[in-house]
């Protein structure tokens, strides 16, 4: 029976020049890598960012100091790769949200109206499963800069603590706290704009 090599054994082999040992290490964590990337990156860019993250992990292996678990260290690198993607691709630095309403399709607007007016739990549970829910969320996030997007996803949506989010983004805790607060205010502003200009008033 073949005994599976531990992470540190594989890392030692890679650092000794055996790059083939990176494949079993990567296979062990590929699910986690893709899960993180899927949360932050648009569908058509997942492959590119996951490849970039994997190469980044390989190149940074020599700096892994075993102070945290390999999983934690890897999560930080992948999250940081997603953040860098948005820093490169987010065109919006300052947005007055003026175009937000015009970007909504009719079905998305109907979804917002239905969510904000209906009080039935059954209907609510059905509504959140609809494609429009994800579309509206994507639309909102497209009106936020890279920092706001990342900090909101980690803290507001994923429920990470300030400390954990700061660790993953390589920011200081106080910086993360301030950015999180500002990002939540911006999100609130966006949500209010969507609600205010809704077609149905119940």
């Amino acid at each position: 029976m073949k005994v599976e090599e531990s992470d540190s054994e594989l890392i030692m082999k890679i650092l000794s020049g055996d790059s083939n040992s990176f494949a079993p290490l990567l296979r062990r964590y590929q699910g986690l890598i893709f899960k993180i990337i899927m949360k932050y990156i648009p569908q058509n860019q997942i492959e590119e960012v996951s490849q970039e993250s994997a190469i980044r992990i390989f190149k940074a292996l020599a700096n892994f100091n075993y102070k945290s678990s390999f999983k934690t260290w890897l999560t930080t690198i992948v999250t940081r790769s997603c953040y860098d993607y948005w820093r490169k691709h987010s065109k919006l630095q300052e947005d007055n949200f003026s175009s937000l309403q015009n970007e909504l399709t009719e079905s998305q607007q109907d979804w917002i109206d239905s969510i904000t007016s209906d009080s039935s739990i059954t209907s609510f549970n059905e509504q959140i499963k609809k494609d429009e829910a994800k579309e509206v969320l994507d639309l909102l996030f497209n009106h936020l800069g890279a920092e706001d997007r990342m900090v909101l996803t980690l803290i507001h949506l994923d429920g990470y603590s300030i400390k954990d989010a700061a660790e993953q983004l390589c920011w200081s805790e106080s910086n993360t706290k301030v950015r999180s607060f500002r990002a939540k205010l911006r999100l609130r502003e966006l949500l209010e704009k969507l609600v205010q200009e809704g077609k149905v008033n119940v």
Partner: peptide, 14 residues
């Protein structure tokens, strides 16, 4: 309404 929309989007994300 804003609260409801925020909650719905968070649940949809989950």
């Amino acid at each position: 309404k804003t609260e409801k929309l925020d909650f719905a989007l968070r649940e949809a994300y989950k």
